[in-house]
Amino acid sequence: MTETTSGAFVPPTAFAVPGRIAVNEQAAARWQQGLITEIRQETHAAATFRLKVPDWQGHLPGQHLMLRLTAPDGYVAQRHYSLASAPDGSGEIELTLDHVPGGEVSGHLHTVARVGDTVEVRGPLSGFFAWPGDRPALLLGAGSGVVPLMSMVRHHRRAGLTVPLRLIVSARTRADLIYADEYGAETEVVLTRAEGRLTARHLAPHLGAGQPDGGWEAYVCGSNGFAEHASRLLVEGGQPVDRIRIERFG
């Protein structure tokens, strides 16, 4: 227990998953124009929006941004969205988002926005869920929780990384599965309406003796219900608590 103020205070408790990267504070603070260059429907509920952001400073897979819309009278609505694209230096980025029922921002993007419109973005934000591609990564996602994980898969492929990476993605049905045509040998798909939710059986081959040297960095993304369930399965399967990173929607 630290009772003096000499040196940094270290809490007498466990955990504290360290951030993965230093965050660029200038990029995070600045709002930039993003020109919509492409809109692709991914499923009945999800679409991908490609934005040209000329001064984009680059990001790491797993990071997110804040997007804002402004009405003529100055009324502003803003939300966080995960980056779907791998960092590729193109000055363009992609977001994939669900059309949330009654959603003020997603509703506009899904039903009003079109190619040629501009929105405003600031980011990339937060270093906690970022994956620089250095450590073996075990990715668990559900629904649109797969979006930041797909950025990692894309980065892994694009950069030709050999560090182990596995993705387990769950969706209600095949029709609800985002990026259905893009998954490869690294991915296992769990369709929950047909086969039930993610279980310890899905994780077992990857944990314990099945894990790579040095173990996994686990990334979990989805609804709170999924995040609670998946993270509990990881802990019960022996994954260290301080190597589980969780991003919950909300």
Binding site: Q33, T70, D73, G74, Y75
Partner: peptide, 14 residues
């Protein structure tokens, strides 16, 4: 903030 084409939002600023 720069106005977004077609965005009216859930509420008026006022």
């Amino acid at each position: 903030p720069v106005p977004t084409r077609g965005f009216t939002g859930r509420a008026r600023a006022a």
